[in-house]
Amino acid sequence: MNIIKLLSSFQRLRPHTRSYLLRLPVEILLEILNLLPPHCLLVIYQTCRPLRAITHQYFLSGRGEILATLEDKLRYLTCLARSLPDYWVCARCCKLHKIVWRDVPATHLYNPECEYGSDLWRDPEDIQIRNSFALNMPAHRHVQLTLKYTRLRTIKWRQRRRLQRLLEPHYFPDKERFYNHKEEGILEQSSFYPKVIDGRYVHLSVQTYLGAQNTISRQFLRRERICHHIRDYKTNLTMAFDMAFSAKDSQLFFSCSSCGTDFSIQASPELVIICTWQDLGPEGTVFDPEWESMFCDLTRVSHQPGNARKLYDQLENNEDYLVL
């Protein structure tokens, strides 16, 4: 019996099946499946006997290794993890890891133990750094778990509590204290405020510098980072700081032309406040453009100046932005 007859007989035995997909003519079903990438076909293969038979016969049999690249494997695991609240996809070892309760952005105490070890900073373009903390951003696993818990409606109380912890504002060193740059006589504090809006993870970070014993100079801010593309005095960040110091305490708005980042600078010799809004995108892998553009020069996304801040604040009107 060929696959067409197999599925047809199955449909006759169960004419009232709830699956609208299985009610379609087989020819149309094959056209639909033909549009899917390999990792989606593997997920379809695991759903039920008729679809398993079809995907194996027409799409998987004789093709060798279906998930040939790291990206294919991660996308497949991401599909599986969508309905598994207690697991997340690790891009370093390409496996599903069980969540650890203390692993939230506010703690910075946990690093996954993978076969590649805990060294996350070998190469700025390496896959490892795209799964970790960098540039004052949350780890990819925190972003994906937050989006998943927000999407799922049937999570348990402990998962709801974990979602609250993932979305809690956090501070470094803490809410009431500043880090003391003793040699420069300047105090620093970092604040982070995550949100999920319309299925997208948006993130606000605020860097505050206080001139305790000395005034704040452009030279002191030379190592400040906004995003992967605007991160030191070799970029247009120099011009942004010059404009901010000249504006005398006025808040100036800027935007990155290569990723979903907006930022503002309010600067004086006594106080500097840098606010950065970033749109990290929807659920996905580290290869998705919104996430990858935050770390790689070769990947860029079209970003309308002010959109990240508008999404975070839900504003109707934007300020005037300077694109860097």
Results as ranks from 00 to 15, higher is better:
residue 165 R to P: 04
residue 211 G to P: 05
residue 169 P to K: 09
residue 212 A to P: 06
residue 227 C to I: 06
residue 197 I to P: 03
residue 188 E to K: 12
residue 179 Y to R: 14
residue 189 Q to D: 06
residue 177 R to P: 09
residue 207 Q to P: 06
residue 211 G to Q: 07
residue 229 H to G: 02
residue 205 S to K: 07
residue 183 E to G: 08
residue 170 H to E: 11
residue 230 I to F: 03
residue 190 S to L: 13
residue 224 E to V: 11
residue 177 R to L: 10
residue 186 I to Y: 00
residue 198 D to S: 13
residue 187 L to A: 07
residue 211 G to W: 06
residue 227 C to E: 02
residue 174 D to C: 14
residue 168 E to H: 09
residue 217 S to P: 04
residue 166 L to V: 01
residue 231 R to M: 11
residue 181 H to N: 15
residue 189 Q to M: 14
residue 212 A to W: 14
residue 180 N to F: 15
residue 161 R to W: 07
residue 166 L to Y: 02
residue 205 S to M: 06
residue 222 R to P: 02
residue 210 L to K: 08
residue 211 G to M: 07
residue 198 D to F: 03
residue 197 I to W: 03
residue 201 Y to F: 15
residue 223 R to N: 15
residue 176 E to L: 14
residue 175 K to I: 11
residue 188 E to F: 15
residue 200 R to G: 01
residue 183 E to H: 12
residue 225 R to P: 04
residue 222 R to N: 07
residue 193 Y to L: 05
residue 196 V to S: 02
residue 165 R to C: 09
residue 224 E to W: 00
residue 230 I to L: 12
residue 199 G to P: 00
residue 207 Q to H: 12
residue 193 Y to I: 01
residue 225 R to W: 02
residue 163 L to C: 07
residue 168 E to G: 02
residue 225 R to T: 10
residue 184 E to C: 08
residue 222 R to Y: 00
residue 217 S to N: 05
residue 179 Y to L: 14
residue 219 Q to W: 09
residue 212 A to T: 09
residue 176 E to K: 14
residue 165 R to I: 04
residue 178 F to S: 06
residue 173 P to V: 05
residue 203 H to W: 15
residue 188 E to M: 15
